[in-house]
């Protein structure tokens, strides 16, 4: 019975890992799970737009699934005066507290982060992989707190994706706004939102299976609302 539950959870975290792999720029030379993308029956042009404009840092409609961008950069509330930091409460900055924790976690787990993720150790793709690792290892308490602490920002990400849908419509830079491109981009946003919804569904089901965890700090709520 217990093993079935373990297998069920591992299967769900495996889904997370597979889904997570779709949130990166795979390009044409990735040795990661690009086959999954091709079976998600998405128009290659849309997928291409998604990768170059949305999922590339500094892209035309760059919105990366990176935890730091949607949370306070260096939460001062638990640090005190000596910990007061430049732009601590700002968002939309890479390498915030979540990324710092992830780096510490990778070190403990003896995991190497590939160079293309150097600026974003808290990228959704990697977070999903770590969740899957806990799932594979059967460490359910760790998995539960990990989901609670590191995958609690998907709503904020989705909100920004939604706001971006017609971001380029009003732009005055005509060079970027060929109609085809806008359509592709909007389709790309819709696609990535549907993927995100699957991630959210999977984490919801996982959390239901694992049982709710008490919020140990009350900080997550604060982060999320901010």
């Amino acid at each position: 019975m217990k093993d079935t539950r373990k297998a069920r959870i591992a299967a769900m975290t495996d889904q997370l890992r597979t889904l997570g792999a779709l949130f990166v720029r795979l390009g044409d030379q990735s040795d990661a799970a690009y086959e999954a993308a091709s079976v998600a029956s998405v128009d290659p042009a849309v997928r291409h737009r998604l990768e170059t404009d949305l999922l590339t840092p500094g892209g035309a409609a760059s919105l990366l699934p990176v935890e730091s961008l949607y949370k306070m950069w260096a939460d001062p509330s638990w640090r005190g005066r000596d910990g007061a930091c430049a732009f601590g409460a700002s968002k939309h900055l890479y390498m915030g507290d979540p990324a710092q924790h992830m780096m510490a976690l990778y070190e403990r787990l003896e995991i190497d982060v590939p160079p293309e993720f150097a600026a974003m150790p808290d990228h959704l793709t990697l977070l999903c992989e770590v969740a899957a690792l806990y799932g594979d290892a059967g460490n359910h308490p760790a998995l539960r707190s990990f989901l609670n602490e590191h995958l609690d920002w998907l709503g904020a990400y989705d909100a920004e994706l939604a706001a971006c849908t017609s971001a380029l419509d009003g732009s005055t830079a005509s060079t970027l706004c060929t109609k085809e491109r806008l359509q592709e981009l909007n389709a790309a946003i819709a696609h990535v939102r549907s993927l995100l919804k699957e991630v959210q569904n999977t984490t919801d089901r996982l959390e239901a299976e694992l049982g709710k965890v008490e919020d140990p700090r009350g900080q997550n709520r604060r982060n999320e609302e901010r």
Binding site: D14, T18, A32, A36, D112, T125, E129, L133, A137
Partner: peptide, 20 residues
């Protein structure tokens, strides 16, 4: 989509699973 795949981006050591 949910066909399991073990390929990922992170590279762990031999001890990673045990550590996790």
């Amino acid at each position: 989509l949910f066909a399991p795949t073990r390929r990922g981006f992170l590279k762990g050591s031999a001890a990673t699973l045990a550590l996790a």
